[in-house]
Computed example of a mutant assay.
Amino acid sequence: MTLKIPTIAEIKEKLSLPKPWDTVVIFLLNILIAIPTFLILHQNLIELDWIYNLDRILLFILLLVVIQLILRMLKTIIIICIALYLVALIYGTLFGNYGFYRVFEDYRYMIYAMSEDPYPQDLIVAKLLPFPNKSKIIKSVDFTNPKVRNFALYATTKHFRDVKGFNQNRKMIQCFAVFKEIKNNWNYVNDPKGREYIAYASESLQHFSGDCDDHAVLMAACIKAIGGTPRIIHTGGHLYPEMLIGNNSDLETAIYLIKEVLFVNESKDKDIHYHIDERGNIWLNLDYTAKYPGGPFMKEEILGALTL
């Protein structure tokens, strides 16, 4: 009995999808690939001042055509590509951080973002790109370190301790106290030349010095140490912290506290700056350049958000 070696044509036929399913699968893959690719290009390419945003419409059409051609060239191994993709997602779901649920969430965020007007006060955060130094930042936010916890407690006793009538907003006021203490002491210092250095929050407490990512890490760790919910925003070349405020009613309370009680002089005749995420949660800007919680953004463009 001789072993028959399949020809290239036979292998190609076995790995090909039957018609018309090949066209359907290729079209669906085209859409799934084109949407995030378009949004990444939209974020990073200069927008031309064309009527009706024709430059972006043509860009999306060009992407669809190019991806369609590439997928049709690869359709003989499309089954293998899909299988590898599913295996990667299954592994991510069971053992990693990126699985089926994250894919669903990311596409939902992107579609939601495309349906909204991205005004600065209304910006929807689209998770398009990997968050830079994510694992280092998470490790650096050492909010359980006694030094971080004790500093946060010290800030809450030093500032706004005697504010009356807002017991239900105690945590918000204490987070604002942390902001004030760090703001009053922070000294901006660049990283070592040619190196991205991310200091632990407990390390930054020694001299209250560092660059924007060190400030963001320290602010996030101290807020988390007293029960608040922080996140760090990545804008490309800049990181800054935000704190979760809640819903519109909570925002009204925060604005009143900032402008009428806690930061009256700093916020006089100034706007309060915040972002609304895809779930309707409101996040207040705490950048080191802001003189009060909700101060002006240093950079409005958002490339990623890391909730801690």
Rank of each mutant, 00 (worst) to 15 (best):
K4N: 13
K4G: 10
K4E: 08
A9L: 15
A9K: 14
I11M: 14
I11H: 05
T23Q: 13
T23N: 04
V24T: 03
N30T: 14
L32V: 15
I40Y: 08
I61P: 15
L62E: 15
I67C: 08
Q68D: 11
M73L: 15
I80D: 07
C81K: 05
A83W: 04
Y85T: 12
Y85E: 11
A88Q: 08
F95P: 15
N97K: 07
Y101T: 13
Y107A: 04
Y109V: 13
Y112K: 10
M114L: 10
D117P: 12
A126F: 07
A126K: 11
P130K: 01
F131G: 10
P132R: 02
P132Y: 00
S135Y: 11
S140F: 00
D142K: 00
P146I: 06
F151H: 11
Y154F: 06
A155F: 07
T157A: 08
R161H: 13
D162W: 01
Q168T: 15
K171T: 10
Q174E: 11
N190I: 11
N190G: 15
K193W: 03
S204T: 11
H207K: 07
G210I: 05
G210R: 00
D213L: 04
H215P: 15
C222N: 04
C222T: 13
C222Y: 06
K224S: 08
K224I: 12
G228N: 00
T229N: 04
G236D: 01
L239Q: 12
I245K: 04
G246H: 04
N248R: 09
D250V: 06
L251W: 11
I255M: 07
I255K: 07
Y256F: 13
V264S: 00
D269Q: 06
D271K: 02
H275T: 07
D277S: 05
G280W: 01
I282T: 05
L286T: 08
P296K: 01
K299S: 09
I302R: 04
T307K: 03
